[in-house]
Amino acid sequence: MNSPVPSVVSARDLGLAFQTNDGPVHALTGVNLDIKKGDFVSFIGPSGCGKTTFLRVIADLEKHTSGGIEINGMSPQQARESRAYGYVFQAAALYPWRTIEKNIALPLEIMGYAKSEQQKRIAETLDLVNLSGFGKKYPWQLSGGMQQRASIARALAFDADLLLMDEPFGALDEIVRDHLNEQLLKLWERTNKTICFVTHSIPEAVYLSTKIVVMSPRPGRVTDVIESTLPRERPLDIRESPEFLEIAHRVREGLRAGHSYDE
């Protein structure tokens, strides 16, 4: 920890305004944030706080309108074109005409990986998300949780150090969600990726993250950045420890503060 850890994402006074008929809507204002290599950062906040928008700006799916942002020292567009990140959407977005295997091969085909390399990576990533043996199935033959795992495998198949996840488990039930959270932590441990994770759930954010970014709406902004003091090794029952509850409390306070002037 002596040498400075490089920034993967660094935003300086970032803003994004959508032009509407009723004048500009400020989805993001004055966002300053540094995400270090190997961080697991959660973005939490109520709907409309701009957490998904921020993720989409990193991914170059939206353009910021003021301030600056760099990903690995590049502009978002350059980063996207150099395939710097994998993106996991709210839904699995697997193509129904492709098998799970072929879905994972999709980015590899587009990026021009050799056939043998594709096979190797498919096997590796399927193993990583515990879906070995399901490669020949079609997406609609799998459960929602398995589909979302396959979509994570697809985002892991190519060499991007940054994983952007937009409420990936939002549509799944609590039990599946717990299980996938645990698996995601293990996966993060094994792959050493930097993960940006958007969520609605306080326990999910606290359980997963090394850093929690609390956001608030109208205009979308960052109200608190909480560095987690939890160890990297986290069994599920860490969620009952006083330390965990203290961080969760601070997140809840942050969310409430963001809301207070609204009432």
Binding site: A59, L61, R80, Y87, F89, Q90, A93, W97, L106, I110
Partner: peptide, 26 residues
């Protein structure tokens, strides 16, 4: 083709022809 599926292709920096062949035509 849905928005999410198109965004997915964009995150891969897929060319227009690749998006056409692999997503929009199917």
């Amino acid at each position: 083709a849905g928005h999410m599926e198109r965004d997915l292709m964009r995150t891969y920096a897929s060319s227009d022809w690749q998006t056409l062949l692999k997503l929009r035509l199917p």
